[in-house]
Design a protein around this nucleic acid. Structure first.
Lengths: 153, 153
DNA sequence: TTAATATTCTACTATATTGATAGAATAAAT
DNA sequence: ATTTATTCTATCAATATAGTAGAATATTAA
């Protein structure tokens, strides 16, 4: 399961994507609009900043903004920063390989190839989806709902 | 990440698959062979028994055995019992749907369709892989390694 | 029917992770 | 200087994970 940290991050980033190119947004605005505890969001945004996903400006007129174009930021990138590797076992992670501690002999482990496939499919999807895609999703889903509402009047 | 519980379960089940049809195996034998803390394995096997994956026999000559044929037990089934739903968000789980607590409006959430795809691919793989497949993996990997060793003599 | 064997049940305990908060320090703008 | 915001340090509560101890129960066999 995705942690709240990662979920909150994606929510805040979606908002920052919507406002991309229009200057910095306050933490408190993001927190209020997405109903995220402000101090908690603060630490999330800071981690994202330290990894280059976000930029920040201190003082009046300051706040947070995307550190690069939204079509160059993938969900995989963001989730790995907040929740760690996507792989279900350390021994099949591409970005953070580690031997499983219990594992005697990785080469003949029958579980590994299956988990490798899970990690590859997960990475394919999440590394192939950008913040722009996320915003497009929201917009097309919102459009679709409005049409349905009109139809029902 | 898979918990140790689920990993241990799959290791023990692989062994029980190998011995399928040859009567019950002692917890202590499973624990020793797979280097799993015995008391911990005990509780894992009990959960699997309560869900019909395993059968048990008490007393002398007792132990654990598969509750149904190994080609009818999927990894998805086992992992859900020990780690809960496969889905990265409760709102995209097929077997344990719940509304995300923070989520105002699920219908227009841009994250949801992506996570739905992740859960669908994960379920496709894990519900499509059985204990027999796991054992086949081990055996073909072991064969392949032996051939390589011979080649190097 | 008693002893031995093995699972089952109840109840803990330690450690790590998750989700969050408080307050001082620092930087920028006016 | 004052105001505005992020940044840093420290801490905290709740929950989940990993593991342990020991008594209770069921089965077999002598």
């Amino acid at each position: 399961m995705l942690s709240k940290k990662a979920k909150y991050a994606l929510q805040a980033l979606t908002l920052l994507t919507k406002e991309y190119g229009r200057g910095p947004i306050l933490i408190s605005d993001l927190a209020e609009k997405e109903r995220i505890p402000k101090k908690f969001l603060e630490s999330i945004l800071l981690s994202l900043k330290n990894k280059g996903i976000l930029q920040s400006k201190m003082g009046k007129g300051g706040g947070y903004l995307l550190g690069k174009p939204p079509d160059s930021i993938t969900l995989g990138e963001v989730i790995r920063i907040l929740d760690g590797p996507l792989a279900p076992l350390p021994c099949v992670s591409q970005t953070a390989y580690r031997k499983c501690d219990e594992c005697e002999d990785e080469i003949t482990c029958g579980i590994r190839p299956v988990m490798k496939e899970v990690r590859d499919e997960t990475a394919r999807i999440l590394d192939g989806t950008t913040l722009s895609d996320l915003l497009n999703n929201v917009e097309s889903l919102t459009r679709r709902r409005k049409e349905t509402l009109v139809f029902h009047i």
